[in-house]
């Protein structure tokens, strides 16, 4: 690890100015991903600006019913928050499916969103990786790619985004509030992360120095049901092979609304718009679920080791839809 300066920020604007003015500087939240990457030599910041003492440790319901989650709220706190458990179970479940108790006590909301892929080649500086070292080549494309993308990948990068939380936020249509030296902007979470294209080194649309300050959840719908299903070979403490977050509104057996996001299949939380289109206004039947899943996966492309993700995603999506539309569901 290269030596670096450390400073603990006590005001937001100062922190943003410090990082914006120094191309080697970056923000430190819980550190669970950044410190790991610094040890591996994947990240080599010259300065860390610790933002964990900034005033973003809140989960509050806004007057219009939306819920605002501060960027430094720890994953464990957020999952335990009553408003999240009651009104956004998909989010609580996604958080609880991620990492371990110890890591969730460190990891922050903002940090979780900007965590980077766990592609083994990305994390190993002794192998080529376009995301880590643009132009060096993608080792996963023809290497070990069991955990890699089946949707939206490019010839330059086939990595997947590792977050569970972000998948739930995508299904919830959350908005990310970001501050930079030019002020504040709001980004739909589905537009925060990028597909790799020919710039796989850029995970998100954030500019250097921009800081996520909070995430806003739309006011909960009383009639919506939501859930998060994560498939992994170890029963806990493992990244998703595939995951499905879904928020459904069903009225007398007909799907009124469906918002579905997939994890473990793409460079970003994958909003399954094709599946949603197929489902809206149709009867909640096994046949329609399958048609919707297949519509989404029509564009899927598999690599040497990850072809199983196509049937696994299809089956998992169908199972989730089945569960959320079950008549007897409390």
């Amino acid at each position: 690890m290269k030596p670096f300066d450390y400073e603990r920020a006590d005001d937001t604007d100062g922190a943003i100015a410090t990082v914006s003015d120094d191309p080697t500087a970056t923000y430190l939240g819980g550190g669970t991903n950044l410190v790991d990457h610094m040890k591996l030599g994947v990240a080599e910041p010259g300065k860390l600006v610790d933002i964990t003492k900034l005033p973003y440790d809140f989960v509050e319901t806004l007057p219009d019913g939306r819920v605002s989650v501060g960027a430094t709220v720890r994953n464990s706190e957020l999952a335990a928050s009553h408003v999240i458990r009651q009104s956004y179970p998909v989010l609580a479940q996604a958080l609880l499916a991620g990492a371990s108790g110890q890591l969730r006590n460190l990891a922050t909301t903002g940090g979780n969103l900007v965590q980077r892929t766990r592609c083994a080649y990305f994390q190993d500086p002794s192998t080529p990786c376009n995301k880590r070292e643009p132009g060096s080549g993608c080792s996963a494309l023809e290497g070990w790619n069991r955990h890699h993308a089946i949707l939206g990948a490019s010839e330059h990068c086939v990595a997947t985004h590792p977050s569970d939380m972000a998948v739930a936020l995508a299904a919830l249509d959350a908005t990310v509030v970001v501050r930079g030296s030019n002020g504040q902007r709001r980004i739909p979470v589905t537009e925060l992360h990028r597909l790799p294209g020919d710039e796989p080194e850029r995970d998100t649309v954030l500019e250097h120095g921009e800081l996520i300050t909070s995430v806003e959840l739309p006011a909960p719908s009383v009639s919506a049901r939501s859930t998060y299903r994560k498939v992994r070979e170890r029963a806990s403490y493992a990244f998703a092979l595939v995951s499905v977050a879904a928020v459904m509104e069903v009225d007398e057996g007909t799907v009124r609304d469906a918002r579905i996001a997939l994890g473990g299949v793409a460079h970003k939380p994958w909003r399954a718009e094709a599946a949603e289109r197929e489902l809206r206004g149709t009867p909640a039947t096994e046949e329609n679920f399958r048609r919707a899943a297949e519509a989404e996966l029509e564009q899927a492309e598999s690599l040497r080791d990850n072809a199983f993700k196509i049937p696994m995603t299809r089956n998992t999506l169908c199972a989730v839809l089945r569960e959320l539309t079950r008549e007897d569901r409390a």
Partner: peptide
Amino acid sequence: AGYHIAAHA
């Protein structure tokens, strides 16, 4: 994280 051994669960 990559080489899994059985965990509690």
